[in-house]
Simulated assay, not measured.
Amino acid sequence: MSPEQFQQKLFIWFDRHGRKDLPWQLDINPYRVWVSEIMLQQTQVVSVIGYFNRFVARFPTVQSLASAELDEVLQHWSGLGYYARARNLHKTAQIVADNAGVFPQTVAELSALPGIGRSTAGAILSIACGQSQPILDGNVKRVLARFHAVHGWPGDSNVAVQLWQISQRYTPTQRAGDYTQAMMDLGATLCTRSKPLCDICPVAEGCQARQQGLVKQLPGSKPRKDLPVKQLHFLLLLDKENRILLERRPQTGIWGGLWSVPEFADPQALQDWCLQRHYRIHASQTLPGQRHSFSHYHLDYIPLLAKLENPINNVMEGGRAVWYKTVEITTLGLPAPVKRLLQQYFTEDQNDEND
């Protein structure tokens, strides 16, 4: 099947069955496409819809995002994970805002901005600007790897080069934006990772993986390795007014820039930390341990709920550690497991008070 035949069959299918009412497909402009593409990285469409709607409602333009405090941006991102995406979004918004709010019009210039890679740049330029630019997100990698029976893990540099060449060759000069949307749709709805719907795929007759019985094997998986396990103790420390102590994490690293509870390698380190600050614990309770998995390790954490006996100052350590009331927590950017932990505790605590 030639690229032209592939495009024709794909357009016929997309015009009849493609998704055209997702929030970022309405009122299309570079800003909205950019935000959606960043959110959709390693996150499913169904999870992104609500976040996108809330995000653009609060930050409708690149200028409004650029002028916002990072804390508020992170708060609107809380729960989506991979928080470097939000920090880069904020940085790039400030750069674009300084350019009168105009996004660069070349892949090279867009790719030079924080958090924007070649595929994201291509998606912005094709969907929002009508340029003929290839993309290679996860869905498109899967479609092309199967259609051309490309073996190997797409994350491998040699395999990626091959897929980029195919993507370039198949991207049309006309209706490039629709083609980009159609390819992402095809991968998301028919050519899925498991249980692909080959019988109704518009390009099934040319798919080499189907012809060779390799649909389940392609694309190749990332070489597996056992993830290490890191163990921590989380301290939920409450003062006499039932405020909780939260610390802002460093800008770099896991959960960068978010607010979290103090964490320790072991109970002794936790006790030493309290002694150094002259905290006298009135009562404490060890809560059930939980696990949060990252892409490169598992985090097992044991929460310790503790209440102070002595009064404390409201702000400490240059503002990095702050005592927050329950109602204030909802306005902060919190890591997902910490947010769930606090919601669980405060909900139960409030229910106990109401009984």
Rank of each mutant, 00 (worst) to 15 (best):
G333F: 07
D266I: 05
G289A: 11
H90G: 12
L22G: 08
P267L: 06
A108I: 06
G220R: 01
L258Y: 11
Q41C: 02
Y279I: 08
E72S: 07
P196T: 04
L218C: 09
L125Q: 06
D355P: 00
Y179W: 01
V107W: 04
D71P: 01
E263S: 14
Y31D: 08
A176D: 08
L246A: 13
T330Y: 10
G187Y: 05
T331E: 14
W255N: 06
R87D: 05
T192N: 12
H278V: 11
W24Q: 11
Q8F: 07
E37L: 03
T330P: 07
D137H: 00
E205V: 13
K9E: 13
D21N: 07
R19G: 04
H296K: 08
N158L: 03
A123S: 15
K9T: 12
G101M: 06
F59C: 11
H148W: 14
R243G: 11
L80K: 14
T326H: 15
K9A: 08
C129L: 10
E4L: 10
L332K: 01
T173L: 14
L287M: 01
W24K: 11
G130T: 09
E69D: 15
M316F: 15
W77H: 13
R19N: 05
G177K: 02
S36L: 05
A66C: 10
Q162H: 03
A97N: 14
H292S: 00
P30Y: 11
W259F: 15
V338W: 11
K222T: 08
P303Y: 10
P30H: 12
R243L: 03
L238V: 02
H296D: 14
I95T: 09
Q268F: 05
K195Y: 13
N310Y: 11
K222A: 10
P30N: 04
R16S: 01
K195R: 08
L287D: 05
D21V: 04
L232V: 03
I329H: 02
I166C: 03
N158F: 04
C129W: 14
R54Y: 05
F294L: 15
L144F: 10
L190Y: 06
V107N: 03
V161W: 09
I329Q: 00
V143A: 00
K91A: 14
V229R: 14
S64L: 02
G256H: 02
I95E: 12
P303L: 12
R169Y: 01
W34N: 00
N242K: 09
V143C: 02
R142H: 03
L186R: 06
